[in-house]
Design a protein around this nucleic acid. Structure first.
Lengths: 142, 142
DNA sequence: GACTAGAGTTAGAATAATTCCAAACTCCAC
DNA sequence: GTGGAGTTTGGAATTATTCTAACTCTAGTC
């Protein structure tokens, strides 16, 4: 499979679906997220995309990331106090935040667990999204 | 039951246990959290405690809140992009964030669910804490 | 009771993350 | 090619939080 082409198409599609344009800036930002999936901050994304598009501004990176989140192509993740991080993994998953290194890992969630968790909501509560964040230590090397 | 006395004692105890002093500032900050459990920000806590201690500074409120978190008397909760909010509910629970009003509700978690969720962690991952945040709409009035 | 060391508080400055804003630019559709 | 919506840009502004240095308080010691 050719992830870039595939995802570039899905980018164009999803943008068009929302009546938005597919710009070079949006492409490089999305590609940067797909290329190195280490949950970068907006600042880190900015640094990376400057290689391809030296004049892109940080404000545009924020705009593009927000656009991608709106189009459901990217998830924004917030850990305590730190800057927002971005994740192109759309499968339902949790995040593990290694407190020693600051690294973040995706944790796959078995199908069914999400709905089981949603079951604890009392009547009248309707959740669009659930964020699950583990914090602790890991010996896993990835 | 007299929640303030009870909790004032547990505050003094827990502080002593960590070799810390029980100061008027720490008391009013903790009492403020117990009195109105609406997950206030540091700024909101500051506004509330000024009624009791007009000269308390925002920096001190931040210091006290951090101290209380260290002593496991209070939990810090972070929603996307917003300021950190503080919660004196120590029972394991999730948070529901109403996107329309910005209000936050505690959601009790049945015993066993936490460990069930922890089971999805691959070997080598050791979580100290789990944050579960629902985002959506609610018709619940509380 | 004064002395001292360390813990705690304070106000304001500094920093970090993000958003706002107005001007310039781009892309189509007419 | 003109107009208007959508987009980008750089810098200013805002927000949340931390840092810093001076000051205060307290507990223990003589």
């Amino acid at each position: 499979m050719t992830p870039n082409t595939l995802n570039s198409e899905s980018l164009a599609q999803k943008l068009a679906h929302s009546g938005l344009r597919n710009t070079p800036q949006r492409e490089v930002v999305y590609t940067a997220l797909l290329t190195k999936r280490d949950h970068p901050t907006a600042d880190e994304v900015h640094a990376r995309v400057r290689a391809d598009l030296p004049t892109i501004s940080l404000a545009t990176v924020y705009n593009c990331l927000e656009t991608l989140v709106q189009c459901d192509l990217v998830r924004a993740v917030n850990f305590e106090r730190g800057p927002t991080r971005y994740c192109p993994n759309l499968a339902p998953h949790a995040h593990f935040h290694d407190e020693a290194t600051g690294a973040t890992f995706d944790i796959d969630l078995p199908t069914g667990l999400i709905s089981k968790i949603k079951d604890v909501l009392p009547p009248g509560y309707d959740a669009d999204a659930i964020d699950i964040i583990f914090r602790g230590k890991t010996t896993a090397t990835r």
